[in-house]
């Protein structure tokens, strides 16, 4: 069985607020994605619901706390918890971030940026190898949204991701909202980013809403907020991505100011429409 078996449909992040609606209405949706850390308790309602929902839909397991980009070693206890979840729910995909979130014993509760150098490339590739060996499957590594750059960076972000994928055999998770956020924040052309991205390695796409602010010099600063619907410029960039690389499983992330189920489902249907049209074109 392949390590990536999500259907080429839209899915959404699974939220406790929607457990009841999902089980009651059994919506026609491609998959649900869960943040692995929310299901690392021993028992209780989260597992009770995930078990039922995983019988009805493919599940994408998405880690937010493994800290693959950390200077220190991976937390083996955390890796063991991931392995347990992977065995229990047999998710159709496992993904994590090109970021770090722990330092020594402290968990910093954000996806923090790392410089792109030969040293960090080597370390990230080693960590990805370790994860894949522990889980016995390939993973997807997600491009980050960032607000700062590092003086010491010597490698372009796409080259960095491509090199990790080439070395480890991992796939990539392309977060189109993150592309927009980082491109605006670092004066890059988001379309040029997509056009240079190794789309053949992409096993899943993420979409989300961003917030807008201004930095110290009054420049537009986008913030990866996951607190609203996908914005038009990101949807347009998404259509361009699909047109160029073909349809891919697509997740709508909405983690803050969580809307009612119908609103979230409608967002998924938008992405589903883009995928269906692309698939129809492909067949024709």
């Amino acid at each position: 069985m392949s390590d990536f078996t999500l259907p080429i449909r839209a899915g959404v992040g699974l939220k406790p607020e929607h457990y009841g609606d999902i089980i009651e209405t059994k919506p026609d949706i491609g998959f649900f994605e869960v943040h692995a850390e929310n299901y690392m308790g021993a028992g209780g309602p989260p597992h009770r619901y995930l078990e039922r929902i995983s019988e009805l839909y493919p599940i994408s397991l998405h880690g937010v706390g493994l800290s693959i980009g950390a200077e220190g070693p991976l937390d083996t206890a955390h890796l063991a918890r991931l392995k347990h979840l992977n065995e229990r729910y047999r998710p159709a995909s496992f993904s994590e971030h090109l970021a770090w979130s722990t330092h020594e014993s402290a968990f910093l509760s954000d996806l923090l940026p790392l410089p792109y150098t030969l040293a960090t490339l080597h370390r990230v590739a080693e960590h990805v190898d370790e994860v894949q060996q522990a889980l016995g499957r390939k993973m997807l590594l997600e491009n980050p949204s960032t607000y700062v750059l590092f003086e010491e960076s010597t490698i372009d972000e796409i080259d960095f991701l491509e090199a990790v994928a080439a070395r480890t055999g991992c796939g990539l998770l392309l977060d189109v909202n993150n592309v927009m956020v980082s491109a605006v924040n670092h004066h890059l052309d988001p379309y040029a980013y997509i056009d240079r991205f190794p789309l053949h390695r992409v096993g899943e796409i993420h979409l989300a809403g961003y917030d807008e602010a201004f930095d110290g010099a009054g420049e537009r600063l986008l913030i990866d907020a996951h607190g609203s619907a996908v914005l038009d410029d990101v949807l347009k960039l998404y259509r361009h991505t699909i047109a160029r690389g073909g349809p891919r499983p697509t997740l709508v992330e909405w983690d803050n100011n969580i809307p009612d189920w119908q609103t979230l489902f409608a967002e998924a249907l938008k992405a589903d429409g883009v995928l269906a049209r692309a698939s129809a074109r492909k067949v024709a």
């Binding site: 607000y147 700062v148 750059l149 924040n185 670092h186 004066h187 890059l188 930095d215 110290g216 010099a217």
Partner: peptide
């Protein structure tokens, strides 16, 4: 830390 402008920005 730096920015595309070439200077660090506390607000970022």
């Amino acid at each position: 830390l730096t920015t595309a402008r070439g200077e660090a920005d506390q607000s970022r």
